[in-house]
Structure formats: C-alpha cells, structure tokens
C-alpha cells in the first residue's frame, strides 16, 4: 500500500475516525514499514504535546473590570434590600404594637441600664421621625392597618430609592449575534 494512503489512515486513526478494518490495515503496514512507523510516532508525539498546551490567563482584575463594564457594580439589589427593610420595619412596628412586656417592666429594665436607655431613646426619635414620613396619618395608637401600610410604604420607598440612586442594568439587544458573524474565508 502507498505511504500516502497510510498517512491518511494514520491521521484518521489519530482522530478516532478510522474503522476496524482501516485500523487493521494500518497496524499491519506499520509493523513492516519503518518510515510510516516514524511518521506515526511523530504524529502521536505532536498530538500529546498539543493536548498539554498551557492555558494562559488575562491579568488580575479582569473579572472586576468586565463586570463593572456590564454594570453589575452599580446594581442595587433592591428586592433583597426591600425584604430586609420591610422585615425590620414590620418587626419594629409589631414589637411596639404587640409587646408582651408591660410598660412598667420595660421602664424598670431601662432605668437599671442607662446606656440601653440612651439607645432606646435615640431609636425612638428615629422611629418617630420615620413614622411621620411613612405614616403621616398615624396618631398615638397602633392599629393592625398601620403595620401593613408601613410594610407597603417601605417597599415602595426602597424601590424608588434604589431606582433614583442606582441605575438598573439594561442589556443591549442590538449586539451582533455570532450567527450573523462574517465568514472569514469569504471576508
């Protein structure tokens, strides 16, 4: 058999494309032809070396730059924040409205710890200020309606806050898709 034909069979064999019969022919020829044997060994060596080619990496900070370019760093996860915000808001309102501790007991605890008293007083001022913003119609008494209004309001406020401060990432739909890419052989 011609060396040229065997050369093709060698390539097919290396690419796992040769069938059983072709493999048989190849092996039979290789066992008696030093020249083709040498070529086969060279090809095997090249193939092995190519499989082991080193992987290179871009410089450190590549991911960060790319994600920033995509707008990820500006994203404000308002849904996550709103949940936390609403949860805290609801918990505080429910605590104030349905506290199991009588007022007297709370006062006793607070007077025995002045530092705690200061924290609570500061908290009261903040909550009171927020209450007037979020619940302008609230009076002194708490009703089940108010925690619900507080919850809805907190979600709305957080949503608009996030929209105003952090632009939401918009994906550009006009990028050329690979399917529309040019064929490099025809230019």
């Amino acid at each position: 058999m011609k060396h040229k034909t065997i050369e093709i069979l060698i390539q097919k064999s290396l690419d796992f494309e040769a069938n059983a019969e072709e493999e048989k022919i190849l092996q039979a020829h290789l066992s008696g032809c030093k020249e083709c044997q040498r070529f086969y060994q060279e090809m095997v060596q090249i193939q092995k070396a190519l499989y082991g080619l080193t992987e290179f990496y871009p410089e450190h900070g590549f991911n960060e730059r790319l994600l920033k370019k995509l707008g990820f760093r500006k994203i404000f996860a308002w849904t996550k924040t709103a949940k936390v915000f609403a949860g805290a808001w609801l918990a505080s309102i429910l605590l104030l409205a349905f506290s199991p501790l009588p007022g007297k007991a709370i006062n006793q605890i607070l007077t025995s710890a002045p530092a705690l008293m200061r924290i609570v007083n500061t908290g009261k001022v903040i909550i009171s200020s927020l209450s007037h913003v979020v619940m302008p119609f609230a009076k002194n008494s708490f009703d089940i309606v108010w925690p619900i209004i507080g919850l809805v309001s907190s979600i709305i406020i957080t949503y608009f806050f996030s929209k105003a401060i952090y632009p939401v990432r918009k994906l550009d739909a006009n990028i050329k898709s690979p399917a529309q890419g040019q064929d490099f052989l025809t230019g």
Partner: peptide, 19 residues
C-alpha cells in the same frame, strides 16, 4: 490585544446571552 479581544468577547456574550 488578546486581553482586549477576550474582554470584548465576554461583553458580547453576556449581552447576547438572552438569545
């Protein structure tokens, strides 16, 4: 150049991911 091309490749990839 390789870094720039890789960068552009991933930008295009993420932007076209929906398709």
């Amino acid at each position: 150049d390789a870094e720039d091309i890789t960068f552009d490749t991933f930008i295009k990839c993420f932007k076209a991911l929906g398709r």
